[in-house]
């Protein structure tokens, strides 16, 4: 009979389970146990009693967090920088990708790609050193070799919050432009050359080809990347905001994102209620935005959705 269920051959599958076991164990430890750890945010954590025996605090931790006013500042910073970085990433990333596509010499292209990608290989600890060599108040290049010859007084960069939106945007662009443009470039080289040949025969200029062929065919990648980035809009690049600012408290009004707050509350102040409330707020709102973003992608471009 065709419909009869074959008995499962466990001995056949056993080796497969054994091979998957380390991965499953890792998912449980690294991803699933922390999900239960969310209860910390709803507890008055007392180390002598442990997590589970500590008293429930309801939503008090969240109430304190949002009553402090710091919460709104760090949410604003997180969202503001992300919106700026997303827009710049698309505009500059697509532009550089189109320029790369114009390069005919393989050697030159490889050289450009290699050099532009180098910042992406640096850890943010190193980037902290790089930025500091320009901005250090005493030994920095900017104060000594640019402002001084102009007859201007040196600026104490690490205590003046107003400069940091610009500094962080420059550093972020410098670090990520290679990565972003390669994503778009690999999408452009997937476009059939037939389109361009036909357009050239019809006498289309380069600009017309870019406007009428490259950009429209790049649109799906742009939209996917845009929506996925919006889905992660409550997450910030901890390295950028913690290392590059040298975690200077004076700069917090324009540099502290949720991730920086969580780190300082947890590791510097041992404030478990604030740090866990901010951390849980971030992961819950983050999951909601990611799911929403994915639902939108699945509606318009099913093949690009995450799941």
């Amino acid at each position: 009979m065709k419909t009869a269920k074959k008995p499962i051959r466990w001995s056949h599958y056993l080796p497969i389970y054994i091979m998957m076991l380390p991965g499953i164990a890792y998912l449980i430890i690294n991803n699933y146990l922390p999900m239960f750890g969310i209860v910390i945010a709803f507890k008055n954590l007392d180390f002598r009693k442990g997590i589970f025996l500590s008293e429930w605090a309801g939503f008090d931790n969240f109430r304190f967090l949002f009553a402090s006013g710091e919460a709104w500042n760090m949410v604003r910073n997180t969202l503001g920088y992300n919106i700026l970085f997303i827009i710049l990433g698309i505009v500059l990333g697509v532009t550089v990708a189109i320029l790369m596509n114009e390069i005919m010499s393989k050697g030159a292209l490889k050289a450009y790609q290699t050099l532009i990608l180098i910042p992406n290989l640096m850890s943010f600890v190193i980037i902290n050193y790089l930025v500091y060599s320009y901005l250090a108040p005493d030994t920095g290049l900017v104060n000594n070799s640019i402002l001084k010859p102009l007859g201007r007084a040196g600026i104490s960069w690490y205590t003046e919050p107003k400069y940091w939106p610009v500094i962080l945007t420059i550093v972020n662009t410098w670090q990520s432009i290679g990565f972003t443009s390669i994503i778009y470039y690999s999408s452009i080289i997937g476009i059939s050359t037939d389109y361009y040949e036909a357009a050239t025969l019809d006498g289309a200029t380069k600009w017309q080809q870019i406007k009428n062929i490259t950009l429209p065919l790049l649109k799906p990648t742009v939209i996917t990347l845009f929506i996925l980035n919006v889905g992660r809009i409550f997450n910030s690049n901890f390295g950028l905001f913690y290392q590059v600012t040298r975690n200077q408290g004076m700069l917090y009004s324009t540099t502290r994102t949720i991730d920086v707050f969580v780190y300082n509350a947890l590791m510097k102040n041992n404030d478990y209620s604030m740090s866990s409330a901010a951390s849980v707020f971030q992961s819950v709102v983050g999951a909601l935005t990611l799911i929403t973003a994915n639902t939108i992608i699945r509606k318009i471009q099913p093949e690009d959705s995450l799941f």
């Binding site: 146990l33 922390p34 740090s275 866990s276 990611l290």
Partner: peptide, 13 residues
Amino acid sequence: MLFNGGIVAQYFV
């Protein structure tokens, strides 16, 4: 991919 407990919960684990 979607949910995580956040860094504080991971730290406790």
